Simulated assay, not measured.
Amino acid sequence: MPSCTLPISPEPPDWSAARQELRDLLTAAGWSAELIADAELALHELFVNAWKHGGSPAPVVVVALLADRALRTLRVSVADDSPALPEQRTRSADPYELSGRGLHLVRSLTHRFGAAPHRRGGKRVWFELDSAA
């Protein structure tokens, strides 16, 4: 029997639940509106990249808030189905290109950013954002 693969929708999947969970967590923890907005934008970039470049019709998002006495760290990871790690561009995209700035944006909004393969053949792209406790 021939195999059939379904095309990925031309529209990105709904990320509103992930965004709302992130917003609720950070608001309850007393994070500033500015840091919450930075976290939401960074999450959006990773989510869309997982759909667009990672071939995931429904990217998996994991949000964790870690705290010690002096610092709180938000860690967000988005998993997709592609084993290809993101390119580490040394310069930003041409200002007239329609894409290519998302990971630069994530890097500029967050304190740490990276990617790692995971066991099932895809990868997790993550960022961390710090706030004073």
Rank of each mutant, 00 (worst) to 15 (best):
P2N: 12
P2F: 09
S3I: 14
S3R: 14
C4Q: 15
C4M: 14
L6D: 06
L6F: 13
L6C: 10
L6Y: 11
P7S: 14
I8S: 11
I8P: 03
P10I: 11
P10V: 10
E11F: 13
E11G: 08
D14Q: 13
D14Y: 08
D14T: 08
W15L: 06
W15I: 02
A17S: 13
A17H: 11
A17Q: 13
A17D: 15
L22A: 02
R23Q: 13
R23A: 11
D24Q: 12
T27K: 10
A28G: 14
A29D: 10
G30V: 05
S32F: 07
A33G: 11
E34C: 03
L35P: 00
L35T: 10
A37Q: 15
D38A: 08
A39S: 11
A39W: 00
L41D: 03
L43T: 01
H44A: 12
H44I: 06
L46W: 01
L46E: 01
F47Y: 15
V48K: 00
N49I: 05
W51G: 00
K52E: 09
H53Q: 10
H53P: 02
G54L: 02
S56G: 04
P57L: 03
A58M: 10
V60P: 00
V60Y: 03
V60H: 08
V61E: 01
V62S: 13
V62A: 13
A64V: 08
L65E: 06
L65G: 03
A67P: 00
L71Q: 13
L74Q: 01
L74C: 03
R75Q: 12
V76T: 04
V76R: 00
S77L: 11
V78L: 04
V78P: 00
V78C: 03
V78N: 00
D80G: 02
D80F: 00
D81F: 09
P83G: 08
P83A: 13
A84N: 14
E87C: 05
Q88C: 10
Q88H: 11
T90Q: 13
R91C: 09
S92C: 09
A93C: 14
D94Y: 10
P95D: 02
P95C: 04
Y96V: 06
E97G: 05
L98K: 04
L98F: 09
S99N: 15
G100Y: 06
G102R: 04
H104L: 07
L105A: 08
L105S: 06
L105C: 13
L105H: 03
R107A: 11
S108V: 10
S108G: 10
L109Q: 04
T110R: 02
T110E: 02
T110W: 00
G114Y: 03
A116K: 10
P117Q: 15
P117Y: 04
R119E: 15
R119W: 09
G121A: 10
G121I: 08
K123H: 13
K123W: 05
K123Y: 08
R124H: 14
V125K: 01
D130H: 08
S131W: 06
S131F: 05
A133R: 12
